[in-house]
Amino acid sequence: MPANAESSRFERAVALLKDLVSALRDGTLFLLFLLLLFTPVTMKEKLVAAGFTKGNIAGMEWEGQLKKSAEQTKEVGEAVSKAGDDYKLLIERLTELESRVREPEIKASLASLGSDARSSQNELAAADKVVKRSLLTQQSIVEAVAPSSVSDRGWLFLGKVSEQKDQWAPGSPATIAPAEPALGKGSTLTIRDDTYWRADSQPGQHANAPILSVARVGTRVIVEEVDYSHARGGGWYVWVKARSGG
């Protein structure tokens, strides 16, 4: 047999083998994708047991990259939330000063500063909602492959109550469906506005604690502990340590 004919047969065999390997690889990836889609917990455990902590299926890196992205989103959420709280304190101080001064010009200047601060606060609140929606989307994907990695317990901000703690201040409760202001261990609440689960912290410092995840609208939570921090203008901010109750 001529050498060139032998070479041609060899090249065809190599090409066929490459096609076969490619088909097997694509088929395996497709099967793995289906298994991850319909039995995510079982497949995730098997992959991790085999030493895989990160994979690439249909162009999507899972778990490792998702968790990293979620952590970055939490950092953005913490920055936006902190800025919003700073503006809240600024507005309270400006309001307090405005009530004390009598000079019309100073009063007008303080009122103008307060108006600008409220506008910035509203813009931050809108940005915060975007961050929460983004984090919720990331949580939903992570939960599909690693349900236990998304926290459903921590500290939640509820709103503000009066100095006597017997009634909610206007606009409160901010994050839960209407409930009696007298809260105690075992109280069941329903989230009505996406809010952050926060990590443990010192009393009165919950707003500065790291974000763990987002409690979705409609989530029922069970109160384990209540903490109050005094507001500069009177009244108390209410935080509860809670866990998801389904």
Results as ranks from 00 to 15, higher is better:
L189D: 04
T190Q: 05
I191K: 08
I191S: 05
I191W: 05
R192G: 10
R192H: 10
R192W: 03
R192E: 12
R192M: 10
D193Y: 08
D194F: 03
D194S: 12
D194G: 08
D194K: 07
D194N: 11
T195R: 01
T195W: 02
T195L: 00
T195N: 05
Y196K: 02
Y196E: 09
Y196S: 08
Y196F: 15
W197V: 07
R198N: 03
R198T: 05
R198W: 11
A199F: 00
D200S: 05
D200M: 01
S201W: 00
S201Y: 00
S201N: 09
S201D: 07
S201V: 03
Q202E: 15
Q202C: 10
P203A: 11
P203E: 14
P203I: 12
P203K: 10
P203Y: 11
G204R: 02
G204V: 06
G204D: 09
G204A: 01
G204C: 00
G204M: 02
G204E: 07
Q205M: 10
Q205F: 06
A207S: 13
N208W: 15
N208C: 09
N208T: 13
N208P: 06
N208D: 15
A209G: 01
A209K: 02
A209E: 02
A209M: 04
P210D: 03
I211V: 11
I211Y: 05
I211G: 06
I211M: 06
L212H: 06
L212D: 11
S213R: 00
S213G: 10
S213N: 08
S213V: 05
V214H: 01
V214G: 02
V214N: 01
V214K: 01
V214L: 01
A215G: 07
A215C: 09
A215L: 03
R216S: 11
R216N: 08
R216I: 09
R216K: 14
V217A: 10
G218N: 05
T219A: 14
T219M: 13
T219S: 15
T219C: 13
T219Q: 13
T219I: 07
T219W: 11
R220S: 13
R220V: 14
R220E: 08
R220Y: 01
V221T: 01
V221P: 02
V221N: 01
V221A: 02
I222E: 14
I222Y: 09
I222A: 13
I222T: 14
I222P: 02
I222D: 12
V223I: 05
V223S: 03
V223A: 04
V223E: 06
V223W: 01
E224N: 08
E224T: 07
E224Y: 03
E224F: 02
E225F: 06
E225W: 09
E225S: 03
V226C: 05
D227M: 05
D227T: 10
D227S: 12
Y228C: 03
Y228I: 07
S229V: 15
S229A: 11
S229Q: 13
S229P: 04
H230K: 15
H230Y: 15
H230E: 15
H230D: 13
H230P: 13
H230G: 10
A231L: 11
A231R: 09
A231S: 10
R232G: 12
R232K: 15
R232A: 15
R232T: 14
R232F: 15
